[in-house]
Design a protein around this nucleic acid. Structure first.
Lengths: 232, 232, 232, 232
DNA sequence: AATGAATGAGATTTCATTCAT
DNA sequence: TATGAATGAAATCTCATTCAT
């Protein structure tokens, strides 16, 4: 997972010019801490409201109230509502890529990596962060073209991660895949399965208690799929 | 596919309630034809505009213009914009279920049915009806709770169809699946794969020329997955 | 004054397609009358509020209230607030051009035309329509680029009218002006005098009782100026 | 030009009240110089931005950036944005009055003073300071009542200057003007001509290369006007 | 049945100004 | 003095929906 490190974006970096100096004054340091804290507060408040009430219902005023800041402050940290959603998406997708990527790495890109990534997705990410799930797969859909472009980039990166893991896997096992597109197709398929399984069993109904079984079966399905596209 | 026949919904028209088909005068018949024609015109106009410009961008006025009726007439045939989308979704999902279901039936619920359903989805439905694809998987997302409930029902039916095919398949082959949930999980997985493969290769990029390969690999992945969850 | 007839602009001309038919139904005729009446009501309300309270202070809501329509109706007739101002400017400038132009024509482009145009401007237009005066010379200034462009076009037309009158005048008198630019410079000067005399004596202070004297002196100044730039 | 000396206004600085110039320490002197330098920087930055981008577009933040100070500092030197504009107007009008006034004085209030004042206005002020021109005649229009009042005072002073020059001129030439208001009317007319000629030929279009001709014709028009209102 | 002008609630967004540090 | 993050009032504008004709 080479480019996992994504730069955190912030609207203005006027202060960062002084941050280049090696030592910030105590005041400046505290200010910076507070700024980052506020930035995170707003993202958290937005995450909760977007997930609970939907992107359209969650007005900027209510997000501001919920984050205990003024509406103006929202617009100081984020250009507009769209921008807020996009940054939220970035943050969530960054976390998810780290989560999955570290499983691939831990297992040294063996089949076990694919397996544990699946388990971690369903049993960690989905169960612990249903809000992130809802934003990634539900609330960020059907918005503006800009958000859609951003979604595409995010999913392209996730797909690239999985695709790379699959290619390393085949290298390790001295296997080839059926066609030149197979790795990409499998990566897209796996993410499609993740998405709709999570949507079906956690967003549309609450089968969180059976997540273990769901996770096991889904992973087994994936492994069967991969094997069936592998050639010696 | 037992309940494939879905009742066509139409606002109960005041004239049709008093007149059964057999005893309609010529004038009344022509009127009914015109009514149905308008109904379809509106749905078609909405389908095109929702797909091309997005649900939010497609204002009721533009839909009316495009269908060559007045805004008022839109509201005569459909309760509101949401209702228009819901009826469109119904129509599209009905067509898709018929398409997939007939493949299952033709193959007598053998593995071939799963295979040909996949090919038909990618090579017929997706390629020939990109607008329907966009509405089913893109434009109907992130709307109101009511639309979301409707989506759930539609997908539940699609899942039930696939699940039934999978169960009949296992009966035919005297096999069992790994767990009680396996059939449902596989059905959801398959539809999730359909959805994101189509989204990735047709909505986000145009790989329509490689649809044959994509279709083949995806179906192979599915068959591998099914086999891996089957026990003698 | 050749192109005095300016087409009245209206947002949509959907109805005008039926207006091409020679005979509108009574209903359609009444509707059209009502539409034009509303359009004028809104312009009148805006004229009053823009002049009395200033363009920025006059909110769309208050204009709507004042015209006894809803805010939505405002936006049905005019694209936005800017558009409302621009149409108002057009209407006012059209009236002013007609007023001045008819004086030039009545006097057959003699010096008397210049004289009576001045008197009519100060003693008719300024005294009877202080609101139009305020909008033309005060409230439409310092707004957006689009409004400024419109102002330029309006003043260019007024200048062209006066310039043409001056050129015909010199033709009639078998005279030439000092330079090639003289006619334009004089036209601009005359309008600049009109503007600031009106602004000074009617907008900044109320010398309406002395308007006769002011008018007489100003016209005398203009005639002296013209003569001084004329050569046999 | 009796009251040409206009007091420079500055928010009474807390240090200057306790320290008269004579007894200022070196540090205090340097501070005062810095203060005045900042004050001028801000005015210059505002002048440029107001003229180039318009009063409304030029936000306080951008003015601060441009002057290389913080927003807070802006508010230390000027009460608010309006106040900044008003001080800028004062400065500009002071310069203009000095320019015109000195021409009147140099020519000892003869007709030549009127002539050279015109030439200096068009050929010096307008050509060299287009930003000042734009602020005086364009950007300061259509703002708040307070700015408008200020404009009135500024123009009243300019009018009074010209009016005084005209009166002294008539005294020198042993002439009378047509009416008691004539001098005022001519002064207003002349300034109106200045304004709109400059606006038309320099702000709305760039005829700077023909400024000599324009200036000559305009001055000739003015002299003709003055003569026509003079009685022996 | 069909029309289309009128409605108005509700959302986003801006930016001059303040004030704790 | 200087800073710049925080404020929040106030404005514009959209568009699904209604209803008299």
């Amino acid at each position: 997972m080479p480019d996992l490190i994504v730069e955190k974006k912030m609207k203005k970096s006027k202060t960062s010019k002084s941050a280049e100096k090696k030592s910030l004054s105590k005041t400046a340091l505290r200010r910076q801490r507070e700024r980052e804290h506020r930035y995170e507060s707003i993202l958290s408040a937005a995450e909760l409201l977007f997930a609970r009430e939907g992107y359209l219902q969650a007005s900027m005023e209510r997000i501001a109230d919920s984050a205990e800041v003024s509406v103006g402050t929202l617009y100081f940290y984020f250009k507009n509502k769209e921008d807020l959603l996009v940054h939220l998406l970035d943050k969530i997708s960054f976390e998810l890529r780290e989560l999955l990527g570290s499983e691939f790495i831990k297992a040294d890109f063996s089949l076990d990596g694919i397996k544990s990534a699946g388990h971690v997705f369903f049993e960690e990410f989905c169960l612990k962060c249903p809000e992130k799930l809802a934003i990634l797969f539900k609330e960020s859909m059907g918005r503006s073209n800009l958000v859609e472009e951003h979604r595409k980039q995010i999913f392209d990166k996730l797909i690239a991660d999985v695709q790379e893991a699959l290619i390393r896997l085949s290298d390790n096992r001295k296997l080839n895949y059926q066609s030149a597109l197979s790795a990409e197709i499998m990566a897209v398929s796996i993410l499609g399965m993740y998405e709709r399984i999570a949507y079906h069993f956690l967003i549309w109904q609450d089968s969180s208690k059976e997540m273990k079984t769901i996770s096991k079966d889904t992973v087994a399905f994936i492994l069967g799929g991969i094997n069936n596209l592998s050639r010696q």
